[in-house]
Design a protein around this nucleic acid. Structure first.
Lengths: 341, 341
DNA sequence: TTGAAAGCGTTACCAA
DNA sequence: TTGGTAACGCTTTCAA
């Protein structure tokens, strides 16, 4: 309404504006707005009415300045070519919305996090930060520590500072190993990744340890570069081997790589699961597509994010809480890519 | 360093802190920090030295309060199951980082944007907002208009208020039609979507208009629901038709749906491009995977985002600029899914 | 139940 | 070249 009367940049209503309109003090307006009980019904109604009428919106940034809490969480996202991070983004956004927080995108992509990125966290006074996958330089971590910004890593473990929430990657890797062994497989291929990610290293360790426990060993290793193309390339190499030298089962450390493997095998007319069994890890939505029908370890993403927020919120209230390290067991989802028992 | 000496929540250095340390006025510190020229080399060095020594970080929120610019842009993301939005997120993040802006995730997903979402934009004083795909209620749009928040839609057109940057969807649809016709096709299938998205409607119109111009008409229509599963379902329906009643070519209005179509056809052993040609729209990275090898219209995403930021920045400086409506021509990328000439 | 005033960290403006 | 001070919008504490 008012914008029609004042064509040139109408000023937004503020607490002071409203207080003048209502003939009360600014503090009274604040109280009425946040539902403070000790305030007369009459003035409250008056103020609430004025607020609505003038389309009042609190300035969250000003609030931060005086209250110290910004309601902002930083989000550092891994390379979203991997749908796992896409799903993580969705889930985090959904939950943040419900909790009344906002997410500041700090980084998205494969590269490491620059120091300037960490600085943005400080400058925007985030109440905490969720870091998935990407690598935080130790200097950046120091910056956060010095400025009391709580950190929670999701799907990777923390170096020296910060909480983390992960899947029990070792147990998941072991479970895949047991499944493949139970299916009578003896020549095990692994599509790994050289990224410094703790996550994939743990999955590999769990897998290999379980194999060795059963008296077996890895027969092939392929670098899948943590992405589809890397998986695809691995699949091509496998298909290119003479049939009697191929692995009879392949564990790709993430679904996105497994998808690449499956597509390459399909193009080469190698039958899955007839000739080779394939398993992945993560449980992204695409793994359930009929074309992939991929056996995988499903991460409890929603719960992981929920815990991450809880850790963050707790540390916003009490910065001196010690770091907590949470691991959740993933769920084995057996699908067609590993055949029938 | 100082944090070691003061274990209990060390206070961050501020402009005032530094000014006291240096024995100058706060305004002098501000000037030195932002590289104002008219300041003596000596004081500048002194102040810069102190700033570094004490790990000073400007408080971006306080800055907003007094300068009016937050350096924050809102980002409303469509359902990121569609890799197009994932790529958009990446590109926007990358460019924002380079420009010194931060992105506030306002929404991600299929649902419409609630009014509370629009409120968040106002409350966090964003300098502008990029909206991709999702639907902004007209009330939400009003809220933005009333509060002078510049809006730029990417990949969809604006209702009544706001700029937009899109692909020339009609021209793209027409180009696909010409290609299919040139390949000798006569029975044209369309995988459309009922979402209110202007984008897909335009693509469809361009496609159909070009067909009719050449004396042809659509023979089949399938609702693909804008996602993979919908495309897959459409593909199954197509494969389920008697061979002589199937379309001999299919245009899916987005790559993600086309991928579903291709997978369904493959599972049903329908040969592409032998029996049916398939084309998509968007040019997402996955369309280039050998398994899909999908002919598509490639949107100039990077440039689109760049323009979007430019529009936003210009309107931050001058809120009275009229809305600008930019369309860019996409590039036809011919791949194997439409066969050889 | 309400008011007054100080303070959050930064910038901008007017003086000196 | 620098200083002083008000202002941004909100919260909080202390008084009334």
């Amino acid at each position: 309404m008012s914008s029609i009367l004042t064509p040139s940049t109408p000023r937004r209503a503020t607490v002071v504006t409203l207080s003048e309109l209502a003939g009360v003090a600014p503090s009274t307006v604040t109280r009425a707005l946040k539902g403070d009980t000790r305030i007369s019904q009459k003035t409250r109604d008056l103020i609430l009415g004025l607020a609505k009428e003038h389309g009042y919106m609190p300035n969250a940034l000003a609030r931060t300045l005086s209250s110290g809490k910004s309601g902002l969480y930083g989000l550092v996202l891994g390379p979203a070519e991997n749908p796992f991070y896409t799903e993580l983004l969705h889930e985090a956004t959904r939950q943040a919305e419900k909790l009344g927080f906002r997410l500041l995108i700090i980084h998205a992509g494969a590269g490491p996090i620059e120091d300037t990125t960490a600085q943005a966290l400080i400058q925007y006074q985030v109440d905490g930060c969720i870091i998935s996958s990407a690598i935080l330089s130790s200097k950046a971590a120091d910056i956060c520590a010095q400025n009391n910004v709580p950190l929670v890593m999701v799907n990777r473990v923390a170096l020296s500072h910060g909480c983390f929430v992960t899947c029990d990657n070792r147990a998941g890797g072991a479970e895949i190993a047991r499944l493949l062994i139970a299916r009578g497989r003896r020549r095990f291929g692994l599509v790994y990744t050289t990224s410094t990610s703790s996550t994939s290293r743990e999955r590999e360790e769990g897998f290999v340890a379980e194999l060795e426990q059963a008296g077996f060993t890895l027969s092939h290793r392929f670098d899948g570069h943590s992405n589809y193309d890397g998986g695809f390339e691995a699949g091509r190499e496998i298909a290119g081997l003479p049939a009697d030298q191929r692995p009879d089962s392949v564990f790709a450390l993430s679904d996105i790589m497994a998808m690449g493997v499956l597509d390459a095998l399909r193009l080469a007319s190698v039958d899955v699961p007839g000739e080779i069994l394939v398993a992945g890890f993560d449980g992204v939505a695409a793994s359930a597509r009929p074309i992939y029908d991929l056996t995988t370890i499903q991460q409890p993403l929603s719960l992981m994010i929920q815990r991450a927020f809880e850790l963050l919120q707790a540390r916003t209230l009490d910065p001196n809480l010690p770091d907590e390290l949470i691991a959740m067991r993933g769920k084995l989802v057996v699908r067609g890519s590993t055949g029938r028992a």
